[in-house]
Computed example of a mutant assay.
Amino acid sequence: MFKIFLVEDDDTMRDIIFDNIKKWGFEGYLPHSFHDVFKSFIDCQPHLVLMDINLPEFDGFYLCQKIREVSKVPIIFLSSRDTPMDMIMAMNMGGDDFIQKPIDTDVLMAKINAMLRRTYSYTDTVASVIEWGGAILNLKDSTLLYNNGHIELTKNEFKIMYLLMKNAGKVVTRDNIMRSLWEDESFVDENTLTVNVVRIRKKLTEAGLKDFIQTKKGQGYIIL
């Protein structure tokens, strides 16, 4: 069962969200106090964090940074702040999404389900690595190994490599990759996928894996 860690200062909003978490069959957890949110997070080891920005002791930005020092767990910010800078700060601090208050609980739960699906579905497998052509993709730490070299991948780069290596020898269409990465984020355009693939190819080439990912014009990408 997925564990959701909720850090919310507004009592009414906290109760509403917590009830919805339980109705959807998730385990809900709250910090012991606002003074020891980080310790509560460590004790809980949740699958996803819902974090208000305005908190009594330490703000959500600070706590997000602390969590990012030890975990890649998805973090969704909840806030009444509505300026572009607040949203940019939330992403720069390591957040994965930003939901502005007042919150529609149906939208919130849809985002939670989508985030959990994207984050954990590709690790639902017995194997912890995928190997192809001497390249080894580690599903546990999102890295690629080749000739004793260690290639660090971003979250999206890792998901792209996972799809391509899982389907090695088959063409994976751009549409399929887009749906897997950003199925509920309509603001992302196709150029974003192109940029990610270019970055992956650069990293692979520097590691000695030139032309590892090939383009099939009008179709998509393939690893042979």
Rank of each mutant, 00 (worst) to 15 (best):
D96P: 04
E57F: 10
M85E: 09
K101E: 00
M89E: 15
D59H: 05
P102H: 10
P84R: 03
L108D: 01
I103S: 01
A90R: 02
C64P: 10
V70I: 13
I112R: 09
A90W: 11
S80M: 08
L108A: 08
Y62M: 04
D86P: 01
E69W: 02
I88H: 05
M89V: 00
A114K: 07
P74D: 00
C64T: 06
L63T: 12
D59V: 06
D106K: 05
E57M: 12
S80V: 11
A114V: 00
L63G: 05
F61N: 06
G95V: 04
K101A: 05
D86V: 03
L116V: 00
Q100M: 14
T105H: 14
N113V: 06
L78Q: 11
I67A: 09
K101Q: 11
T105L: 10
F58V: 15
K101L: 08
K101S: 06
E57Q: 07
E69I: 02
G95E: 04
N92S: 09
K66I: 08
G60M: 01
D59I: 10
L63E: 12
S79K: 08
V107Q: 07
N92E: 15
F77R: 01
P102V: 12
L63I: 15
M91N: 07
A90Y: 14
M109F: 04
P84E: 08
K66A: 07
R68Y: 08
I75G: 01
F98W: 03
D59N: 11
N92L: 03
I99G: 00
S79D: 06
E57I: 06
Y62F: 15
A90T: 12
D104C: 14
D59L: 12
G95I: 09
Q65C: 14
K72M: 08
I67G: 01
V73M: 15
P102E: 08
G94Q: 12
R81N: 04
